[in-house]
Write a protein that binds this DNA or RNA. Structure first.
Lengths: 226, 226
DNA sequence: TGCTGTGAATTAGTTCACAGCG
DNA sequence: CGCTGTGAACTAATTCACAGCA
């Protein structure tokens, strides 16, 4: 589990939304928009305006009453909050289908996430190059990360070996793990894990593929809760 | 945002956890374990035992007091709840890096999600084969899905074109969308969308890579109040 | 006795509604 | 005015705690 001793009182969903705000702010900047109101942000993101203001309020005061928020200033503040105001080195473990696809993901650069190394344990893969990165032997992760000082790791390895990989990563100084393997990781309490589970997402969707219509159909529109 | 109509009183997170329970139950079955208690499930999943029992309670009574749950029975019940007791056809749009990687994902079959077609709009890709599936021209999605009757679609296209793709999918009978593009989709209220955002995940992790003094750090001196 | 199933209590997260500033 | 920032009200989700069954 995600073991969160929420020292600060910032809700976890708030952090995710900050990334969304940032994305929209970059779009606005590109369109030469200078200021934006919470109402306009709601239009762009689908996230309630009060939610937007509340999310920001955890970190200070950002806007001008009667005017709104200065696009570039707010951008700047959010990148600092999320610690992506400077390059954040990230390592990836597992150069299979998914891992290789992730290496090419352009969003990393845009958000100052710099993929600094890719590891695998297959002899056949070690030494080959994907997207300018030579695949490293995972057995060397400890010494290599001494140099690289990455604190974030992405795990795209099969479920079977993932716990051992996670243990080694913690040993090598990793503090945060994005886990794509369908497995529950056990890590020390100061390590943060986020799981991305395609199956979980698809299960939620599958559940909704017909029951929804049935339920909605039997309900008068007025009884619908928003 | 994720158009949520909690018409039924089942919390959305419950559905995701059901997929996790199912995964563990399949592991237990493979290990020839016949019954399992909520406490043992907590050990395997990291999810609180009371949570497990409460999650199941939304759908009926499954266990035997003093004994626990019959592994295969519970498996069976969960697959029916999630509507993956029979093949659920799924289509994928976007045969780029990520899309192609997803086609090879072995978890689909295990969970009765059957990828029945892959679409792209690039002439270069249409007609080529990945994992036994010929890439189809997205312009034919409507007529092809008349045959296929998929209700779930996975979107792995660039953010720029994703809204138009989503519109066409809705036209062609899709009811649930798993969106990998960093964009906010506008869809009719009876369509369910789940967004998978790597950047959002990484942002949350990045935020947590150290510092307890973050709030003070990001507040301008004037805004500081303590 | 050892477990489940579930109301009650608790905690987390969202939205309202409005005072107050530019 | 038109907006922000935020207590207060509300809604959602989690966890407790225990009655009751096999």
């Amino acid at each position: 589990m995600v073991t969160q001793f929420n020292q600060s009182r910032v809700p976890v969903p708030t952090l995710g939304r900050l990334a969304t705000y940032l994305r929209v702010l970059m779009e606005l900047e590109r369109a030469h928009v200078e200021t934006v109101s919470s109402a306009e942000m709601e239009r762009q993101t689908g996230i309630n305006a009060a939610q937007f203001r509340k999310d920001l309020s955890y970190f200070g005061e950002f806007g001008k009453p009667g005017v709104g928020y200065t696009v570039v200033d707010l951008q700047d503040r959010i990148t600092r909050i999320l610690k992506i105001d400077r390059r954040q080195p990230v390592i990836l473990v597992g150069a299979g289908n998914l891992g290789s696809a992730l290496v090419g993901y352009p969003g990393f650069l845009e958000n100052q996430m710099e993929l600094v190394a890719v590891f695998d344990n297959s002899a056949a893969k070690v030494g080959t190059v994907i997207h300018n990165l030579t695949i490293q032997d995972f057995r060397n992760v400890q010494e290599l990360n001494q140099q690289l000082q990455a604190r974030i790791a992405i795990l795209a390895v099969p479920a079977a070996g993932v716990q051992r990989v996670a243990d080694d990563l913690v040993q090598s100084g990793i503090k945060a793990i994005l886990n794509f393997a369908p497995a529950t990781l056990k890590v020390p309490e100061d390590i943060v894990v986020r799981n991305v589970s395609f199956m979980q997402e698809l299960a939620v969707l599958s559940y909704h593929t017909s029951s929804r219509l049935l339920v909605a159909d039997t309900m008068p529109p007025t009884a619908r809760k928003l």
